[in-house]
Structure formats: structure tokens, C-alpha cells
Design a protein around this nucleic acid. Structure first.
Length: 448
RNA sequence: GCGAUCGUAGUUCAGUUGGUUAGAACGCCGGCUUGUGAUGCCGGAGGUCGCGGGUUCAAGUCCCGUCGAUCGCCCCA
């Protein structure tokens, strides 16, 4: 931390070590799960014309009005670093004529930018994984998308998180509800918190999840969306919930759950840690780890044809905080030359081992003790030791670092022995998993 | 954007009511008769105490500003 070196920009992070491993684990798991549901991988620009976000998110939303990184490029166009994925994906769908692929299941991940006050789990440059189904108006699309989200969280080993589900109805239902809320809260305007008085004008739905005690007094009797739902909207929501039950996805109705962005219709959802859970503690003030909904209105706001779509996004940093400590994979083989004269041979051997798919590292610094020490700490199964005698004979010393047993072997024999060692490791891991499973089964038996 | 707490070696921290060359642990580097490791021993490098200004004979320690982190609000992933 010296005086004159550049510092990272506020709200950005250099991710390394265990955090980086967790981050990679989230992304890798997402990639694996997304293939099971046949979502296609796509990449999108990090910046778009400002209007892409302004028109789709709504000018009055906080994201657009005060959180975007916008700038003028050299040609005088107003551009914006993407604050979210959906608008850019919608733009790509329209400008590339991807209607031909509808219904299009698409997945992506990457960096997003929002000018906000940084906190734990909230950054100015942050990363999301994202999944969308575009051109599908059926409730089955909502179900599949949510089933994938639920599946992903299971694969990540995240527990104590519940799917909170709501419907905002179709455009007419939503508008009628909104009007009802304005009437209701407007009558008691003076008694609401300052924030909610402002919400009344900007986004009245948001008053419903206010934490201010002054507002909470009025929440119980506020008009419910259910009273405004058209028969079609009701039937749609019913299909979604039945589908989730069929897929074995647990959910909880959350009547006050609304989404901040204007383009949402029908299904809205968030995966939120249960109160008091370890997950809730790990996230600090941030609660939602994955959120999304149906946005049938979006394409039209970008000048395209009416196109139904559903999607969700999840914060990679937030998920990474919940997957527990992950460390770098250990080395399998350590190659240790005894001195300078053996270094070239060591390089040759190490390269052969890597080409044979063993994670291999050379240890050439420090005295013998240090070399072995490092090899050991890096988790090596075995060390290949090369000295003058080995150079002469062509047989290398192969030392099993767990048993200490050491033999002179040819390179081919070393590769064979190394496969055996790896296999033994794998068997051990499988045994562990098996006994864990057995314990679970036994615990289940005792419950009954 | 609002309120609060904090900021000392690479890391985690200690620094007594402001008083001489700022400490520890871990990590890093070297060595312990240079062909062998998981706990050992010896030695070493590394900090203008976030940055700038002020008060004082004297400031890591007090005051102001600034930057950053953290906690809550707002908003959201």
C-alpha cells in the first residue's frame, strides 16, 4: 500500500484466491445446468446506445435516472455501460431477426455497471448470470425457467433460500391495481414516509415492500393484486404454480413482491434467503440473490413487435458468497530437480506429465527441504526427483508423498503409477460421498 | 443521494491518559556441513501508521477535509 500507486476504482474489485474459485464455480455450474435445459450461450456488447436502456427500463426508474454510466463517444452518440442484461438482449433479438429462432432460450453472463453506493454484495462493476426465454407466451416457459433457477441453486449447494412468487397480471390488471393503490395510499398521503410519498408518484407498487413503520400500518389493508386479476391472468398464474408443483419446485406466494422495472407483467419472482438463515447473514443488507419475471411489454417499448418473454438474472458475487470456501485444485505431481544441472531434464519431464493430463508443477527454488515442503503444501500426490544419477541411468526417483515410498522408474512407468494414485484419490472421494449419502438415508429413516 | 463505524508491514491485528529508532503472528526470502518433505531452529527483507491540512515543544494517537471499506436507508443482483 505505497503512497503513489494507482488505486482501484470505487466499487470495483480484484477477485483472487478463494473468492475467484467460488466465482468460477458459480459460472461453471451455471454453464453445466444451462445445457441440461438447452439454453444457448450468447455474448453481448458491454455498452449500448443509452436509449436502449432508457426506453426499456423506463425513464423514471432509479437505474436509468441516477445509476447509469453514460458517456458521449467521439461521434457524439450517448452510450451507456449495461446496467442489466435484458434490454441489450431484447435489442439484439430485434436487430438480428432472432424471431426465426423463437422460442429462443438464451443464457449469458458477464459484467454490469451501476453507479451505486458500494456495500457488501453490491458493487459498481458486478457480474450476473442470466437466462431468458424469448418468444414464448406460455406459462410453461415460466415454469421451465424457474425450474432451472431452482436446479442451479441446488447444484451450487445453496440452502435456506426460498422462491418468492407473485403475479402482476396482464397490462390491464396491473394498471387497475396500480390505480387502486394510488387511490388507497393517496388518501393517507400525509401519514406515509417521505420515501413512500415519492413512490406514490413514481412507483406506487414499491410502497408495498417498504420497511418504514409509518407505511407498514397501511399495508395490511392495501388493495391486493388478486382482486384486479382478469380471468386470463388468473388462469396464467394458476398454470405457473401448478407447473412448479409438478416440477417439484418449492415456492411461496409473496403478494407484496413487485419488480422495480416497468416492463414486467404476470410472473415476478425472487429467490430470497430465509430470515435468520446463514445465507441471510452472509449477504448483509442485500437479500435477493436471483430475480426476474415476465416482460411481455419490453419488445414493444423498443419499437419491435409484441413479443412475450421471461427471464432472470442472479448476482455472481452474491451466489459466490453462499457457496462456501473453495480452493485451487491441488497439484498432482511435483517435479524436483536436485540442482541446476538437472533443470532442463526437469522441464522436459514436467511437460510430458502435463501432456499426459496431470496437474504438474516444478519446484526449483530454495534448498531440498523447501522444495519438498512446497510440493507437500501444494497437495502433490507424488514427487519425481531428478539428480545426477537419474540423468545417467534414465530412471527417475518416484516418491509417493503420502507413504514416503520411493522407487526408480522410467517416465512411462511413472505415468502409469500416477494414474493409479489419481484413481485411488477418486475412489476415496466416492467413498466419502457414499457414506454421506448413507448417513442422509439413515437420518431420513429415523424421522419416519 | 442520506445516516453511522472504521482505515497501522503482503495478511490478521497490538500500540497504554499525544512523548525518544512503530511491534506480534502468519506469509515471503536466505541458512541449519547442498540427494529428500509434512510440526523444528537461526537470520533477513518489508510500514514516511490511507491521503492532505491543522492544533502542539511533540501526533499512529486530538481537530478538519478527502479517498476508500464496512453497516443501515434508498434502489437492486
Amino acid at each position: 500500500m505505497s503512497k503513489n500507486t494507482p488505486k482501484a476504482i470505487r466499487g470495483t474489485q480484484d477477485i483472487f484466491g478463494a473468492d475467484a474459485e467460488s466465482f468460477a464455480f458459480v459460472v461453471e455450474t451455471f454453464e453445466r445446468v444451462r445445457k441440461l435445459y438447452r439454453f444457448r450461450r450468447a455474448e453481448f456488447p458491454v455498452f449500448e446506445k443509452t436509449e436502449v436502456f432508457a426506453r426499456s427500463l423506463g425513464e423514471t426508474t432509479d437505474v436509468v435516472s441516477k445509476e447509469m454510466y453514460s458517456f458521449e463517444d467521439r461521434g457524439g452518440d450517448s452510450l451507456t455501460l449495461r446496467p442489466e442484461f435484458t434490454a441489450g438482449i431484447a435489442r439484439a433479438y430485434l436487430s438480428n431477426g432472432w424471431q426465426q429462432h423463437a422460442p429462443l432460450k438464451i443464457a449469458t453472463h458477464g459484467a454490469l455497471f451501476r453507479y451505486e453506493r458500494p456495500q457488501k454484495g453490491r458493487y459498481r462493476q458486478f457480474h450476473q448470470i442470466d437466462a431468458e426465454i424469448i418468444g414464448a407466451g406460455e406459462p410453461q416457459a415460466d415454469v421451465e425457467l424457474l425450474a432451472m433457477a431452482d436446479h442451479l441453486l441446488k447444484e451450487l449447494g445453496i440452502e435456506g433460500v426460498t422462491l418468492h412468487l407473485n403475479t402482476l397480471g396482464d397490462a390491464a390488471s396491473r394498471d387497475a391495481w396500480r390505480a387502486g393503490l394510488i387511490d388507497y395510499f393517496g388518501a393517507v398521503r400525509g401519514e406515509l414516509s417521505e420515501d413512500s410519498q415519492e413512490r406514490l408518484d413514481k412507483n406506487p407498487l414499491r410502497i408495498l415492500d417498504s420497511k418504514d413503520p409509518r407505511d407498514k400500518a397501511f399495508l395490511a389493508d392495501a388493495p391486493k393484486i388478486d382482486a384486479f386479476l382478469s380471468d386470463e391472468a388468473l388462469a396464467f398464474f394458476d398454470s405457473v404454480t401448478k407447473g412448479l408443483d409438478a416440477a417439484g419446485v418449492k415456492w411461496k406466494r409473496a403478494e407484496a413482491l413487485v419488480r422495480g422495472l416497468d416492463y414486467y407483467r404476470h410472473t415476478a419472482f425472487e429467490f430470497i434467503p430465509d430470515e435468520g438463515s446463514a445465507a441471510a447473514k452472509a449477504l448483509g443488507a442485500q437479500s435477493t440473490i436471483l430475480g426476474g419475471g415476465r416482460y411481455d411489454g419490453l419488445m414493444k417499448s423498443l419499437g419491435g413487435p409484441d413479443t412475450p418473454a421471461v427471464g432472470w438474472a442472479a448476482g455472481i458475487e452474491r451466489l459466490a458468497m453462499l457457496v462456501g470456501e473453495r480452493n485451487q485444485e491441488p497439484v498432482e505431481l511435483a517435479v524436483i530437480p536436485l540442482g541446476k544441472d538437472e533443470e532442463l531434464k526437469a522441464i522436459e519431464v514436467a511437460q510430458s506429465l502435463r501432456l499426459s493430463h496431470f496437474a504438474t508443477e516444478l519446484f526449483v527454488r530454495g534448498n531440498m527441504k523447501k522444495r519438498f515442503n512446497r510440493a507437500d503444501q501444494a497437495g502433490a500426490n507424488a514427487a519425481i526427483i531428478i539428480g545426477a544419477d537419474e540423468l545417467a541411468s534414465g530412471l527417475l526417483q518416484f516418491k509417493d508423498l503420502k507413504t514416503g515410498e520411493q522407487t526408480a522408474l522410467s517416465l512411462d512407468a511413472i505415468i502409469e503409477r500416477s494414474w493409479d494414485l489419481r484413481f485411488a484419490d477418486d475412489m476415496e472421494a466416492m467413498d466419502d460421498q457414499l457414506s454421506e449419502l448413507e448417513q442422509e438415508v439413515r437420518a431420513l429413516g429415523e424421522q419416519d
